[in-house]
Computed example of a mutant assay.
Amino acid sequence: MNFQSVNSPLEQFQIIPFIKIEIGNLLLSFTNSSFFLLLTLSFVLLLISLVTKKGGGHLVGNAAQSLVELLYSFSLNLVNEQIGGLSGKVKQSFFPIIFVTFLFLLFCNLQGMIPYSFTVTSHFIITMGLSFSLFIGITIVGFVRHGLHFLSFLVPAGIPIKAAPFMVPLELISYAFRPLSLGIRLFANLMAGHSLVKIMSGFAWTMLCMNQLLYLIGALGTFSIVLALTGLELSVAILQAYVFTILICIYLNDALNLH
């Protein structure tokens, strides 16, 4: 067994092993991605514990409690609005997974906006693992609720029977691409925006170090662009968490209610 510490600086888009563990041919590494995943989870648990009754919750909420209550109400309304045809109690049985997914994505995305941090959701394997695991769970829920009748989603309502052999493969491909589109959308938006901010920041800093008036004016203009892009990225970070969550609700509603 070989333990090797790695003292590389954090980089925005590169998975760097902090601790490299080799057991024979098996490589187990604790990377910066693993570290920031644990950091996000710890922060979410700490924030929620601060607003619980035993953790210091108050009848008149403070800022942290108001934030968690706002996120809770937002997620609950999302479930009630997007999942129809069921009783409130049945709907709310799916609320915990929706709430946790939204919180996880929101704080992962926002954490990536902190300088010298790491954007977990800018990695394809993370977003795809999350989207496929949720989608497999939704499919299992559909089969548990409807049995083999769940396969009727492959035949859209109102089409002629003769068209079914052509529609079934198309609907199956469309259904299979849902988790792929979920993961790619989240990964691509976070990766592209953060890459653009990083490139523009490096370009502005290089011009600022030129010590010439023309380059200084250009650097100030570029820094203004970076500031605007940072605000845009902050909006994208919140929006992508919302889009991912609402699509999960829509897919869950399709699995529960079929056509």
Rank of each mutant, 00 (worst) to 15 (best):
N2A: 04
S8C: 00
L10T: 14
L10C: 08
I19Y: 07
K20D: 12
F30P: 04
S34Y: 01
T40L: 00
S42L: 13
F43S: 06
L46M: 06
S49Q: 02
G57E: 01
G57T: 04
V60S: 12
V60M: 10
A63Q: 05
S75H: 07
S75L: 02
L78G: 13
E81T: 13
Q82F: 11
G84C: 10
G88V: 04
K89A: 15
K91G: 06
I98N: 03
L106A: 03
G112H: 03
M113R: 13
M113P: 02
T121I: 07
S122V: 03
M128G: 14
G129V: 06
S131K: 05
S133D: 10
I136Q: 12
G137V: 09
T139S: 08
H146E: 12
G147I: 11
F150A: 15
L151F: 15
L151Y: 15
I161V: 14
A164H: 06
P169L: 09
E171S: 14
L172Y: 07
S174F: 02
R178Y: 01
I184C: 02
I184Y: 01
R185A: 12
L186Q: 10
F187N: 04
A188C: 04
N189V: 02
M191N: 06
A192K: 12
A192Q: 07
A192C: 03
A192D: 09
G193H: 01
V197L: 03
F203A: 15
F203N: 11
L208T: 13
C209Y: 12
C209A: 15
Y215G: 04
Y215S: 13
L216E: 11
G218H: 01
G218A: 10
T222K: 03
F223N: 00
V226D: 04
L232R: 02
E233M: 13
F244S: 03
Y251I: 13
L252Q: 00
